[in-house]
Write a protein that binds this DNA or RNA. Structure first.
Lengths: 223, 223
DNA sequence: AAGATAAAAATTATCTATAAAATCGGAAAG
DNA sequence: CTTTCCGATTTTATAGATAATTTTTATCTT
């Protein structure tokens, strides 16, 4: 089980299935392929110069990640989502990231915290949402990783991917300032070994992302 | 996304991939196929009277569930696990089940609680671990389901499957009495609308399962 | 006999081709 | 205008073949 994440990474450089999985996940998360879009296996087989077999395997992985929905004998389409699900993912992230932080806290060195601060600064200067999200993900990951719980981290990663989808597609809130301020508050608390404060701030911070949604209430295929 | 669980169920009756996935998951969870065992695609293709393609798709699903580990070009084997992971899963379950219970609480009717009590009684009279685990799963599910958060429930289900693996294979603790007592305490608290008490008891209860491990410290292939 | 190297066998991962099942769109009938 | 039916498209699933890689076996050297 410890190898899940490593596999997910090595795999995408080694096997065709891995490459396709990563490419499709990227497009779905970035909103390049919108919710409800039908994914035709032969289309992607041709695009990636592969047969339909690895494409289908990639579909199964994306299905497990919650990025696509597969209906038996009716093919695969990009998962739709609504505000209820945005909130659901936010709550799950809050719970699990607090758990991770509790276990990571004893192993957090000031070197790590410094690196986190640097990443946060990079986020503040991000030119676009995409770059900001990248920094945001990195920030959360670097302070949680020391929990040494690979399965937990894998689940958090999946949830983060879902969050990123919401961020990129329609649910765009004003990113930046309030979040980065939260990040600073978390770092401050960690520096002073006030772990409960850090955890509480993290929970509020993650849930806020779920609450502060923008215009559209539902992302679905233009059926 | 709402459809994930439904799919997982309908699928296993509809498509060959689904049937194979369910069958293999059952065997792995029950310990019928031990940790570290190599899973040969042609073998299962023959056993299920199918080709290797649906078998490979099933492998990808099981991989995402954390039941098998796949190394590129070296095949798939049943995931090993150690005490650290048992604890990890228990902590994740505790966090997420508490979250689910918080959201389910307002929708819990006394009819549901009565049914939960009946299930608990069935668990007490269970003839073997298998039957007891079935009742245990049902108990947790019936009081959490009303949270109306499908993704959360799907994740909890996966964690529960992992827990069941530990229970069945080597990590056998004395099942029964203390757990069923906890269940009763949870029901009592819910009846009296003391949701915080119920949540705290649930958390302690789930974590206890992770702590109270039996003899073996590590389940791995006899390498 | 032990260890190292090379040949052989087994296994995975993939492709091509094809059959069967199901859906979707549109045409025909009421 | 609605319903029904048929054909085209799409998807699921199988079979057989091939390339690459891993594992095993066998041989050779020291």
């Amino acid at each position: 089980m410890q190898i899940i994440y490593k596999i997910m990474k090595n795999d995408s450089d080694t096997t065709i299935t891995g490459r396709i999985t990563r490419a499709l996940a990227d497009r779905i998360i970035s909103g390049d392929i919108g919710p409800g879009t039908k994914l035709r296996q032969d289309h992607f087989a041709e695009e990636f110069g592969a047969s339909h077999v690895p494409v289908r395997e990639a579909f199964r992985r994306l299905e497990a990640q919650g990025l696509v929905v597969s209906e038996p004998r009716r093919g695969v389409r990009v998962a739709s989502f609504d505000i209820a699900e945005v909130r659901e993912v936010a709550e799950m992230r809050a719970s699990l990231e607090v758990l991770a932080l509790r276990h990571a806290a004893p192993h957090l060195t000031s070197a790590i915290l410094d690196k986190a601060e640097a990443i946060n600064r990079a986020g503040e200067n991000a030119p676009d949402v995409r770059a900001w999200e990248e920094a945001n993900k990195a920030f959360h990951r670097i302070i949680l990783e020391p929990c040494n719980m690979p399965r937990l981290m894998a689940t958090i990663d999946d949830l983060h991917a879902a969050s990123a989808r919401f961020l990129f597609s329609g649910f765009r809130m004003e990113w930046e300032s309030p979040t980065d301020q939260d990040h600073r508050a978390i770092l401050r608390a960690l520096h002073e070994h006030q772990f409960d404060v850090a955890a509480a701030t993290l929970a509020r911070h993650v849930k806020w992302i779920g609450t502060k949604t923008g215009a559209k209430r539902h992302m679905r295929a233009p059926s």
